[in-house]
């Protein structure tokens, strides 16, 4: 069974995603830092901006020519420039996903889903968080489930990524009532309730950028 028309993801697609994601992070950096203030240490926006700026520059200077290589390159830059909890976690997410894509010049939506799932498993393994711990996983996991469901229902790349983006955003919002059990917010105990998790929010931004890239290509 071939991938549906318009569903092919190549290096160019992911490079465009990187541009869109970086712009979105730039735009939302202050908001992410704001979210990281009451339950964290007020650096998430700056962390993400620093990492994505570096990643975009690196990818522009030496454009990788497979989708896997783009993700690995972005992941490596995040690890080398972000620091904090989000650096290794997002770095691992993207490196694992990229590695799972191998050397293929184009990959299908299903391959992308599997790659993202591998990446998210890497995040869970590294950070030890489970759903409802009020972390980025609470946006990432529902996103992949939604992507998977939409794919099974035969959606186009743009459609399945739109579904993933919606689920990620809902997942991020759903962290508000949660009590944090991982990361800095966990130090606050019950006082972490009532605030949206910054990492889940940035995850939603990154997946929304994927959806937007697909939509612009469609």
């Amino acid at each position: 069974m071939n991938a549906p028309t318009g569903s092919a993801v190549d290096a160019d697609f992911l490079r465009r995603w990187l541009g869109t994601a970086t712009e979105s992070i730039e735009r939302e950096a202050d908001h992410l830092t704001e979210l990281d203030s009451p339950i964290g240490d007020a650096d998430h926006g700056g962390n993400m901006r620093r990492g994505f700026r570096a990643a975009r520059t690196a990818v522009e200077q030496e454009p990788p020519d497979t989708p896997g290589a783009v993700l690995v390159a972005v992941g490596r830059q995040l690890i080398s420039t972000v620091g904090g909890a989000s650096g290794p976690l997002y770095g691992t997410l993207l490196r694992r996903a990229g590695k799972s894509l191998g050397d293929e010049p184009t990959v299908t939506a299903a391959q992308l889903r599997d790659a993202l799932r591998a990446g998210v498993d890497g995040v869970a393994q590294l950070g030890g968080a489970v759903p409802e711990d009020k972390t980025m996983l609470d946006a990432l996991l529902p996103a992949i489930d939604a992507l998977s469901g939409a794919l099974d229902a035969g959606g186009s790349l743009a459609e399945v990524l739109a579904a993933a983006a919606q689920a990620a955003e809902d997942g991020a919002k759903a962290t508000i009532p949660l009590r944090a059990r991982k990361g800095r917010a966990s130090y606050l105990g019950d006082r972490s309730i009532g605030h949206q998790d910054p990492g889940a929010t940035s995850s939603a931004l990154l997946i929304a950028a994927l959806a937007q890239t697909a939509q612009e290509a469609a």
């Binding site: 962390n47 080398s80 420039t81 620091g83 904090g84 909890a85 650096g87």
Partner: peptide
């Protein structure tokens, strides 16, 4: 030393 309140990177 990392960025302000941000752990340094492995490099």
């Amino acid at each position: 030393p990392g960025e302000v309140f941000t752990s340094p990177v492995p490099d």
